[in-house]
Amino acid sequence: MRDDLSGLMAFLAVARRRSFTAAASELGVTPSAVSQSLRALEVRVGVRLLQRTTRSVGLTEAGSRFLSRLEPAMHGVQDAFDSLGELRDRPAGLLRLTLPRYGYQEVLGPRLAEFLAAHPDIRVDIHLEDALVDIVQQGFDAGFRVGELVDREMIAIPVSGDIVMHVVGSPAYFANRGKPKHPRDLRDHDCINYRSRTTGGLLRWGLSDGAKRIEAAVEGRVVFDDAELVLDAAVAGLGLAYVPESRVRKLLAEKQLVRVLEPYSTTLPGFFLYYPSRAQVAPKLKALIDFFKLKRRR
């Protein structure tokens, strides 16, 4: 196939220039290389394509017919290469992203309209998944995840501040069970657990006692692998929940939930945009990276 392509390029150049020397100059090879490529092509197709004399080069009837079909096809090939050049030079095409629902709600969703307005040739395919996925194996351009979950082999840039975590419960729950005063009191309460879809383990509740950080393995009668349902269960009075502040701000204001253990609150690393390599970053992905870098500086 590679030899055929060399022969086709040589044939087109000679047909245009009517000269082996001029064709060789155009292709950046020697006249003998052009001649060899053409001989190989004629052997391949089984007919003579060129009439050669010591003073001129012309097309045979078969050569003329072949040229009339070949030129449009080669223009199509050139157009295909040009289209790749356009993708290389400007942000365009489909951007496949993976992130948890909370990441979409907090990081990407509020900024998506602005990003797409700035880059009208980019389309996005968004895969919402709490489990950590292999973005290379599954064909994603990039992902958004909390920092501590990002593989160290990935290039990662911060796109949000740290996540403040709260322990909350409903007024009805506290009316029946009272409020914990210290992290050790959690052992006497029903705590709604969240099971990681990545590891299969239960999320430990990170709290701080002065300079000491506590990683509490809490217990309760209800476990979910969906963060949305953890919050719904807390509102329903099924127990205490460990959730990001931004997720419960409105519910706290409406007094559907009440915050406890405030002196012991701590933070988790914020969200990062991550991708496999710094080499040959596609313009569509670079546009997303630059967009979030600019947002972080503001």
Rank of each mutant, 00 (worst) to 15 (best):
F140K: 03
D141E: 11
A142Q: 00
A142S: 08
A142D: 06
A142T: 05
G143E: 07
R145C: 01
V146D: 01
V146N: 02
G147D: 06
G147F: 00
G147Q: 03
E148W: 10
E148A: 11
L149T: 11
V150W: 01
V150Y: 01
V150N: 12
D151C: 03
R152N: 15
R152E: 15
E153W: 12
M154C: 03
M154K: 01
I155P: 00
I155Y: 07
A156H: 06
A156K: 05
I157M: 02
I157Q: 00
G161S: 14
G161Q: 06
G161V: 03
D162S: 07
I163L: 15
V164L: 14
M165L: 07
M165R: 13
H166G: 00
H166F: 12
H166N: 08
V167H: 07
V167F: 07
V168K: 00
G169D: 11
P171L: 11
A172G: 08
A172I: 12
Y173E: 04
Y173T: 01
Y173N: 07
Y173P: 02
A175H: 13
N176E: 15
R177P: 00
G178A: 05
G178M: 10
P180W: 01
H182A: 01
P183H: 02
P183S: 02
R184A: 08
D185F: 10
L186F: 08
L186M: 12
R187D: 05
H189N: 09
D190Q: 14
D190S: 13
C191M: 12
I192Q: 08
N193K: 05
Y194T: 00
Y194L: 14
S196R: 10
R197T: 11
T199P: 04
G200P: 10
G201D: 11
G201L: 14
L202F: 15
